[in-house]
């Protein structure tokens, strides 16, 4: 079989000048949308990663309700009201935090060059902190999948802090125990409220809190669709987190 010969000399060279700015933007946007891989940030983003085993495995939903959070990364304006509400609701001391907002600067990006990434405990399905704790002071709640603390059992070895892939834990001097986000279970959910303090206070609707096992919940509908790119942070750790990220 003969191979088709190309005359390379006659091919038009695509120099940067020969492509319009709009076309380039389009191309870049398309690239971002398809891969979702943003400027070296190692966020594995595949379409609806949930059914690839991050939130639940073959058994569908390990918990009922299966509490989780969806974060619209591009909506965050770093007003820090969530952090403030969290600290107030859960008596978080000034030297610690249960949730924070990280900044990613992208000077090379077109238009918006900075984005804010709220982070908190990912209430992992395979939590390294729970495995590591020698005294079961931290445990995965069988009812709702929240990773909780029994303060009096904490020996302060800080294995959970070292183990956590999300830097979600700190040692609370007043409680004499490691403290972490419990999706406001202690302060709100157990008292009949349906959402976390951070989600409630957010003026930009960044944080969507809900039950992932409920097909009628907003978080279920947002996460379970093909058009939307959903990702989690540090999927390579194998911790199977329950905090999802998206843009839109």
């Amino acid at each position: 079989m003969m191979q088709k010969k190309f005359d390379f000399d006659k091919l038009e060279i695509e120099l940067p000048d020969s492509i319009s700015k709009i076309e380039r933007r389009k191309f870049l946007k398309m690239g971002f949308a398809i891969t979702g891989l943003l400027l070296g940030g190692k966020i594995l983003s595949l379409t609806s990663v949930v059914d690839k085993g991050y939130a639940f495995q073959k058994e569908k939903y390990p918990y009922k309700p299966h509490y989780s959070m969806l974060i619209y990364q591009n909506r965050c304006i770093d007003c820090e009201l969530c952090m403030e509400a969290c600290s107030k609701t859960n008596q978080v001391p000034s030297y610690g935090y249960r949730t924070t907002i990280l900044q990613r600067k992208m000077p090379q990006a077109i238009d918006q060059q900075i984005e804010f990434i709220p982070v908190l405990c990912n209430q992992c399905n395979r939590p390294p902190c729970v495995t590591g704790c020698p005294t079961r002071a931290t445990y995965k709640d069988k009812r709702n999948g929240i990773v909780m603390m029994i303060n009096k059992k904490c020996i302060g070895c800080k294995t959970c802090m070292t183990a956590c892939p999300y830097n979600a834990r700190y040692y609370n001097e007043e409680k004499h125990a490691v403290d972490k986000c419990d999706f406001c279970y202690g302060s709100r959910l157990s008292k009949g409220l349906t959402t976390t303090a951070c989600a409630e206070v957010c003026p930009a609707g960044v944080r969507i809190f809900g039950d992932l096992s409920d097909p009628n919940s907003e978080i279920f509908r947002m996460v379970h669709q093909l058009e939307r790119t959903i990702w989690v942070l540090r999927p390579e750790s194998g911790a199977a987190p329950n905090v999802f990220y998206t843009r839109g």
Binding site: L39, G40, G41, K42, I43, L102, Q103, R104, K105, I117, V119, C164, P165, Y166, N167, L233, R234
Partner: peptide, 11 residues
């Protein structure tokens, strides 16, 4: 830092 590869300013 655990968030090193995320490329955030803090880490």
């Amino acid at each position: 830092p655990v968030y090193y590869e995320l490329g955030v300013a803090e880490y």
